[in-house]
Computed example of a mutant assay.
Amino acid sequence: MTEATRPGSVVTLTPNPSIDHTVEIPALERGEVQRTSTALVEAGGKGVNVARVLAKHGHRTIAILPAGADAQRMIALLEPQKVTTVPVPIAGSIRTNIAVVEQDGTTTKLNEPGATLSPVELAALLNAVEEYLAPRPSWLVAAGSLPGGVPDDFYARVAALAVAARVPVAIDTSGPALAAAIDAGATVIKPNLEELEEILGRELTTVGDVVQAGRDLRAKGTKELLVSMGGHGALLITEQGSWWAGGPPLVPRSTVGAGDCTLSGYIHATGTPAQRLATAVAWGRAACLQPGSTVPGPEDTRACADAVRVVADPDPLQAVKDVAS
Results as ranks from 00 to 15, higher is better:
285 R>L: 15
230 G>P: 02
152 D>N: 13
226 L>C: 07
233 G>S: 05
237 I>V: 15
234 A>P: 06
160 A>N: 14
156 A>T: 09
263 L>G: 08
286 A>G: 08
178 L>F: 07
242 S>L: 08
186 A>S: 11
154 F>Y: 14
143 A>H: 09
185 G>R: 03
173 T>F: 01
194 E>W: 08
206 T>E: 06
247 G>L: 01
199 I>C: 06
237 I>Y: 02
151 P>R: 04
191 P>S: 02
192 N>Q: 09
199 I>S: 03
144 G>N: 10
236 L>R: 07
151 P>N: 08
257 G>F: 10
258 A>V: 10
254 S>P: 08
146 L>V: 02
213 A>R: 00
251 V>W: 06
205 T>Y: 03
269 A>D: 07
196 L>E: 00
175 G>F: 03
273 P>T: 06
194 E>C: 07
267 I>Y: 00
242 S>R: 04
149 G>E: 03
175 G>K: 09
226 L>W: 00
176 P>T: 10
240 Q>R: 14
148 G>A: 11
221 G>Y: 10
245 A>Y: 11
281 V>N: 07
192 N>Y: 03
177 A>F: 08
193 L>D: 03
232 H>C: 12
156 A>V: 08
165 A>L: 13
254 S>L: 01
181 A>W: 00
143 A>E: 12
168 P>T: 05
156 A>D: 02
221 G>M: 09
185 G>H: 09
177 A>Q: 05
168 P>Q: 09
288 C>N: 15
